[in-house]
Design a protein around this nucleic acid. Sequence first.
DNA 1: CTGTTAGCGCATTCAC
DNA 2: GTGAATGCGCTAACAG
Lengths: 339, 339
Amino acid sequence: MAIRLTDVANEAGVSLATASRVLNGSARKPAEEISLKVRQAAEKLGYFPNAQAQALARSSTKLIGLIVRDIADPYFSSIARGVQRGLGESGIQLLLASVGSDHERELETIRAFMSQRTDAIILSGSRLLEGDQQLEQLLENYQANGGQAIMIGQPLALTGGIQIDNDGTAADLASALVRLGHRRFAILAGDPELATPRHRAQGFSDKLERTGIAVEQTLHGAFSREGGYLAMSDFLTAREKRKESGQICVFCVSDVMALGALHAIRERGLRVPEDIAIVGFDDIPTLVDVTPSVSTARLPLEEIGRMAGEMVLSHSGAKLVVVSGVPMMRGSSELATAD
Amino acid sequence: MAIRLTDVANEAGVSLATASRVLNGSARKPAEEISLKVRQAAEKLGYFPNAQAQALARSSTKLIGLIVRDIADPYFSSIARGVQRGLGESGIQLLLASVGSDHERELETIRAFMSQRTDAIILSGSRLLEGDQQLEQLLENYQANGGQAIMIGQPLALTGGIQIDNDGTAADLASALVRLGHRRFAILAGDPELATPRHRAQGFSDKLERTGIAVEQTLHGAFSREGGYLAMSDFLTAREKRKESGQICVFCVSDVMALGALHAIRERGLRVPEDIAIVGFDDIPTLVDVTPSVSTARLPLEEIGRMAGEMVLSHSGAKLVVVSGVPMMRGSSELATAD
DNA sequence: CTGTTAGCGCATTCAC
DNA sequence: GTGAATGCGCTAACAG
């Protein structure tokens, strides 16, 4: 079908080997004169090297895989952009999979990437709290065959990657809020089986406890905007029933959940922060356009992606880097002046 | 390095061909008994088919390429998610490239995808207004070799894809605003060399003209949040100098630009919509969390991506589908009651 | 139904 | 510095 290197070699009147050496950097350098002929022939015929054939012959694809939960979620799309940046001009191509919360599909994707012989796989969804046998086994196999497994979030014992200090960052967030004067707290905690939301909630409430403050309520919901919306709705309904009032500060374990929660609050005609103070986590780019500005813990998302990309390039996939977030106190968590 | 099919065949005590037939759907079905042995051997050895070798032998990769300008932009990430959805369980893998506004890089990416022998390439950035020789030639070559070139936005003469009726939709938007009572308009028009922003601005102003209304000002800026911010800043500075006041409705050719513009307006302490009414285009998911709610033309972004993905599956890449947006009048374009 | 064999397109030893 | 030959891992005729 397409033009092969053989065709180019024939057209140029040289051997296959020579054509190969010209069109790809080989150790041996053919004469300039002959190089030109080959290049012209390739140009004329519209030759494109067959990456599959090259991969087979060199036993090295220049492919890596990135697995995210939802590419339309700003958290993941920021990371994805960072990865692309990190890859830069390396010529490495990125295989993307947006697998949703479907764990089985995630495993299938890893298998697919292994089949593609990707040089590295970057996993960016949240891990289950209890170790995942299948996943670990798969990645171990992958690494045994020379693949780099890089995790963003909570690296496994056997993988390197970027570890996000969810626990410590959430604690800092708690401290900052107490310093602001908040004393009443609730947590919108996300799926209790996932490590990330779990650690964030835990870090937050532990810190409060050490300060002598008890979290009044912990609600669980899906780790998504929808989940935040529903959980907050439940919270508000219960609050109404109790005819309770007075500002309370609700820590949402992700910005995306916080936005859903914000929506639920507004829908009921309540005010942020006067009635409910809101705090998120991640500092997704979307936040800049939200009013009131949402307090959160800033994670350098794009930078995290970039680091992962660079780890691929430098073959330092086994390295572990820890990244912490920094509290950003904005409008949504201002202390109500009078009660 | 890795386990080969040959290894599996040996382990199972069958021939290479039989192993191949068992592990991949072939027309000929080996006996159940022997199939089992092969599968067990594969499992035991941890065999993963080498996709490159398969591609070479079958001359069919199950790969497609998606090119966007910026994967972190909600417009593109929504489309990307749609494409993934459209691909569904097909087992086709997605190669993603986020090329920025770098035209040369876009061409390079297409070449890379051609080398990868992707079955299809979905182009989703905006085209230049004047035909791009190189791009067309490249895609023509690609199609001649059996590739599907699918464009989202403004398909070229030689490609199919999803055409967005920017012109007509912008006109509808203009009508809706006039119907609301607006009479004073400005356009925040984006890069004049790109087809998409150009068509939107043109469609909008043409419709107004036919209604007997002249656009007071047209500003150009980059087709991005930053561009929207800067252009609006200039607009407001000029307006201040002229000591002008009174509501004017500014049509931003994309939501992302509108958000940048909104930021600039707020920064100066002006109000939306009382001082400046804002209208965007696309209806990116981000908008739901912005107050006031931003008027726009709703494009079914995810659906558009899904359609593109399905076109790949059904090999109908040459088909042309036209999608129109529908005006969504929300808070940001309310008419100021008194002036 | 199963095994043998010949490529798929290219990189790379090895001779010249 | 250049060409001929071998093999990367697998599929798909072709025989048996």
